[in-house]
Design a protein around this nucleic acid. Structure first.
Ligand code: FES
Ligand code: FES
Lengths: 141, 141
DNA sequence: ATAAACCTGACTAAAATAGTCAAGTATATA
DNA sequence: TATATACTTGACTATTTTAGTCAGGTTTAT
């Protein structure tokens, strides 16, 4: 089970942005330089974040991005959802009664994978951007 | 974040095996048929499980595999470890002081990913093969 | 002897990931 | 108003990982 760079970068970038938020829009260029993430890749990521109304864009010179909600209202779930970083413990569709590989019923371990998925998603639902920033400040002391 | 088939199959196969354990060795052929997993793939998986002493093999006709420990002593952690299904939330090496992409320090969100990794691994450490079988019996009533 | 079943290593098609690249559009400011 | 900064969009691609397959064994009960 791996967390993809896309998901990891999305959170890193938003934490970076959130620290400078309320002052000025933060440009992707700055985030790119500070966090060492490819600018072109960031652009893809922020396009998705904007579509899901997690950030707002300010075009033109001195532009950049601003948070569109309070930091405590942005959970990891929302971020991951926006960039299509989803937890998948199975191959088969949830809606369908059928199992993996076209089997007619769900497998012996199906319930386990559901539990696992919930366990992980719970973590994402509990952590907000604000938590991350606080956590970070304390660490710096 | 996806669970790979290899990890999923390893657990499925062991649950299947554990149900018939204590009677006779269980052949991979049977597991393959019952669970709909490629025989050749199962062989790869069981080779690893045997090397980590989770199962024992019985060669020749009427042969197969038997659990090498009690079902309550085999945790998901042990199974995943055996087949190299590991949880990885970061790219950078844990031992190294360096961050991802060759950065000289760890990133802003590093602590978060450590927490996430622990959170997931906790789940794997708590679940034993016995739990899965019990769970399954109850469900069948 | 033979068939069932384990054992091993090499190989490969397909999918996913982690980007890059090219060609724009909007706007603050000099 | 010229221009540089920064967002916007979509297509393209190299690399890696996954999920197997395939071809050849070896062991042993009957
Ligand atoms: S995981 Fe798909 S059938 Fe259980
Ligand atoms: S995840 Fe590698 S530096 Fe934090």
């Amino acid at each position: 089970m791996k967390l993809t760079s896309k998901g990891r970068y999305a959170v890193m970038a938003l934490v970076d942005l959130a620290r400078f938020n309320n002052i000025n829009p933060v440009s992707l260029r700055d985030i790119s330089l500070r966090q060492g993430i490819s600018l072109d890749y960031l652009e893809q990521i922020f396009s998705k974040l904007r579509k899901k109304e997690i950030v707002q864009s300010v075009r033109g010179i001195q532009g950049g991005y601003v948070l569109n909600k309070k930091a405590n209202e942005i959970k990891l779930t929302n971020i991951f959802d926006a960039v299509d970083e989803k937890v998948k413990t199975v191959q088969c569709k949830k809606e369908s009664k059928k199992g993996c590989n076209g089997k007619s019923t769900k497998c012996l371990t199906h319930n386990l994978w559901d539990e696992l998925e919930n366990h992980i998603n719970n973590f994402f639902e509990q952590k907000s951007l604000e938590d991350l920033i606080k956590d970070n400040r304390e660490r710096r002391i």
